[in-house]
């Protein structure tokens, strides 16, 4: 399976070339276009039978869909084009064992060998980070595709790193994050417009996005006419 990022960075779509027998698991509704030799299977299970209804329900809690779409090439040289819901970039992360924790709705697609589960991030993280209480946990070996709202950036953290709440796309499970104040005083943090921030600690990759959907909503919402 080969992939190519098209129209980067504002309206990125990922184009896959699949050989006969190869397959890809995608978020429901991610498909933009595909060639005729691909079969689509929609289930709540991972390919190969893992998971099921419970995992599907757990996925829903994390902001993903109950169902997954599995695309399988039944003829050689098939093309599949997928893209995220919001305007923004996509990124490829090669997994060599281990786990990546993805913010709900940022998971776009992954190889069938990658297990997609949900992990609980706790109340405090959810209340203060502006993220969901449940996150998507991807583990195994293979390719993982993430989407963002706005541009996506990757940083290799070794030590500590601070990121504003709501900007997290994904991070490796070797990283730990705490919610903290942006500046030393709480009042200063809020006056500075930063409020609370996520402080990462450890070693690993962190993906973050340049924009956050709630910020757009907060800007547009008051200007919309009531129905």
């Amino acid at each position: 399976m080969r992939h190519e990022m098209l129209c980067q960075p504002a309206s990125t779509a990922v184009q896959f070339k699949l050989d006969q027998g190869e397959s890809l698991t995608c978020e429901v509704g991610a498909m933009i276009a595909m060639s005729s030799g691909l079969s689509v299977q929609t289930t709540s299970k991972s390919r190969g039978g893992g998971g099921g209804i419970v995992k599907g329900l757990k996925r829903m809690f994390s902001g993903e869909s109950f169902f997954l779409n599995h695309f399988t090439a039944e003829a050689p040289e098939q093309t599949l084009l997928i893209g995220p819901t919001m305007l923004g970039d996509c990124v490829h992360h090669a997994m060599r064992g281990g786990t990546v924790i993805v913010q709900g709705s940022s998971w776009l697609a992954s190889s069938p060998d990658i297990d997609i589960d949900t992990s609980w991030q706790g109340f405090t993280s959810a209340f203060f980070s502006g993220e969901s209480m449940f996150w998507v946990k991807c583990s195994g070996q293979g390719d993982l595709f993430l989407s963002s709202y706005g541009a996506i950036h990757c940083i290799e953290i070794d030590g500590t790193y601070t990121i504003d709440t709501g900007h997290i796309v994904a991070f490796e499970d070797t990283l730990k994050f705490n919610i903290g104040k942006a500046s030393r005083s709480l009042i200063g943090s809020f006056l500075g417009g930063e409020g609370l921030v996520c402080k990462f600690q450890g070693q690993g990759k962190l993906y973050y996005q340049s924009h956050t959907p709630p910020a757009l909503g907060a800007l547009l919402g008051p200007k919309l006419k009531p129905k």
Partner: peptide, 10 residues
């Protein structure tokens, strides 16, 4: 100690 769970041993 660290990691997302806080229980990962490095």
């Amino acid at each position: 100690l660290g990691g997302a769970s806080g229980r990962m041993l490095f």
